[in-house]
Design a protein around this nucleic acid. Structure first.
Lengths: 208, 208
DNA sequence: AACGAGGGTGAGCAAGCGCTTAGATCCGGT
DNA sequence: ACCGGATCTAAGCGCTTGCTCACCCTCGTT
């Protein structure tokens, strides 16, 4: 178990960086709606309604429905990448850093699976420029995980025949948690994180 | 390597079971469109256009757009389950059967990733009864994989602390191949299948 | 007291949606 | 030669969509 209790600071609220307050309410409503029904099946009226506002209010804070998705996707990817980097930049052995990365990354995808579902599975609904921007962030996530595995192999901690293939598999495994994870299910985010960290260590052939 | 060569029989053509020919053309067009843009972003006019027909022609062969998705989903899930069961019902050791299952399941998800993407990720667009029917098929896929792992543990071949969690992870890993796999990418479906079979054997602690 | 800027609304526009209908065309059976 | 069913189309109906516009309300400032 790692340090998880903390004083409620400035940016601990999930969408604390989004202001003003009405814009945040709209964004939170959009995340819920997109996660439940998908971007294309969600109407701007539905989003505004969930936020307790008229349909026109949405366009005071966002130019288009697509801009809303982009904001969600951007903030979510930034957060995901930050989580991976925090673990990767530790100074323990590669096995420990990889386990940390998977554990916290998976925990985030489980705990905030509504957000993660939108962030990870609605990429294609973005316009070309916005999509390109997000794809670049994903490349950095990939590079971060790959680096840990590379270092583990170099240090003789891991035994991995195909580093880039294994990297893709590890990220895919973690991301897909947001698709099947259910808050009403048997497992807590912490439990899934622990299970997945163990599975990934096995995948890279780390000795226990 | 398992038996995979067979004489081109009645049902080897991907959508051979769909008749008449115009209905099949529409269904194939729908698979492509749904995979590219998602169910909700696809219009009936687009589907009919890809099949070289007028929008109204669709409704001669299918009652609604949702019925098209259901037909695709049903046939796809049947095929996926059949693949898993063929491997699970083998008579070798559990490790071999698990590797076979993952290899062929992954190969299908890579080779036919357009179909698989629709089948695996557009479940929520189905109506309640159709969704329930498909969910039941997924439960059977889960049970099939779990059985192999259970038997491997019982035989002392595997070392798995959490069988149901590992089952979910294995299936999730395989299914997500259809999301990221790209025909233009570096890897062939066979290569991904082999890589994933190896990774999964590691996940269950099979001695090599 | 008057102001102006920003946040909000009700009504509604143009476009596109899933789907229907009336009628044309094809074609094997008698 | 004629029929009847199956297949397909042109046109379009009723509705919803993303988004806009003219207007109103609430304030801190002067």
């Amino acid at each position: 178990m790692s340090a998880a209790e903390e004083t409620p600071g400035v940016e601990d609220v999930p969408w604390g960086e989004v202001t003003p307050e009405a814009a945040r309410r709209l964004l939170v409503a959009a995340v819920e709606a997109f996660a439940e029904r998908g971007y294309h099946a969600t109407t701007t009226r539905d989003i505004a309604g969930r936020a307790g506002m008229s349909p026109a209010a949405l366009y005071i804070h966002y130019k288009t429905k697509e801009e809303l998705l982009h904001r969600i996707s951007r903030i979510g990817h930034d957060k995901a990448l930050e989580i991976l980097r925090a673990a990767a930049d530790g100074d323990g052995p590669a096995a420990e850093r990889l386990a940390d990365a998977v554990r916290s990354f998976v925990r985030w995808h489980a705990e905030r699976h509504t957000t993660a579902r939108v962030v990870q599975y609605e990429l294609d609904a973005l316009g070309p420029e916005h999509r390109a921007e997000i794809v670049e962030l994903r490349r950095e996530s990939d590079a971060t995980v790959r680096r840990i595995i590379d270092e583990g192999v170099a240090a003789g901690e891991f035994e991995v025949p195909d580093v880039s293939g294994t990297t893709v598999a590890v990220l895919s495994l973690c991301i897909d948690v947001s698709r099947w994870f259910n808050t009403q299910g048997r497992r807590t985010p912490d439990e899934v994180g622990a299970l997945y960290a163990d599975l990934v260590l096995r995948m890279v052939g780390a000795q226990k």
